[in-house]
Amino acid sequence: MKGITRSRSLVMNVSLTPELEQFVREKVKIGRYPSASEVVREALRLLEERDRSSKLSWKLCKRKLWLELSRSSVGTLWMAKQSL
């Protein structure tokens, strides 16, 4: 079909601890996910989301710190030294 692109699925085998394997089996057993692959995909999506959120939080923290430094006399002196 025109305009639709399909991504290739990568087949990958992973090793899990017995505890994680049981966790995955339970999620499938209770019907939360249709397969172990779906459990792993959801876990990876959440990890990716957490990583993005952490990066954003770090950027905001650095901006706040820079703003506070620029407002203080110590920060002004420090920034002046940085530009030398």
Rank of each mutant, 00 (worst) to 15 (best):
M1H: 10
G3D: 07
I4H: 03
I4V: 12
T5M: 04
T5R: 13
R6Q: 10
S7I: 06
S7H: 08
R8Q: 10
S9R: 00
V11Y: 07
V11T: 14
M12P: 01
N13F: 00
N13R: 09
N13Y: 00
V14W: 03
T17W: 01
T17E: 02
P18M: 07
E19V: 03
E21D: 12
Q22S: 11
F23L: 04
V24T: 02
R25C: 04
R25I: 02
R25P: 04
E26A: 10
E26S: 07
K27T: 06
K27M: 08
K27A: 12
V28R: 06
V28K: 02
V28I: 06
K29S: 08
G31H: 02
G31M: 06
R32C: 06
R32H: 10
Y33F: 12
Y33I: 03
S35E: 04
S35P: 07
A36L: 08
S37G: 15
E38P: 00
E38I: 04
E38S: 04
V39K: 04
V39Y: 03
V39P: 07
V40M: 05
R41I: 05
E42A: 12
E42D: 15
E42R: 06
E42K: 05
A43I: 07
L44A: 13
L44R: 03
R45S: 07
L46E: 15
L46M: 14
L46H: 08
L47D: 05
L47S: 11
L47V: 08
L47Y: 05
E48H: 11
E48G: 13
E49V: 09
E49D: 13
R50D: 13
R50I: 13
D51H: 07
R52D: 09
S53T: 11
S54A: 15
S54Q: 13
K55T: 10
L56R: 15
L56Q: 14
W58M: 10
K59D: 14
K59C: 10
L60N: 14
C61S: 15
R63H: 10
R63D: 15
W66K: 15
L67T: 11
E68F: 00
E68T: 06
E68G: 04
L69R: 05
L69H: 03
R71A: 13
R71C: 10
S72Q: 08
S72E: 06
S72R: 09
S73G: 07
S73Y: 01
G75T: 06
T76S: 12
M79S: 09
M79Y: 07
A80V: 04
A80T: 12
K81F: 08
K81L: 14
Q82D: 03
Q82P: 00
L84K: 14
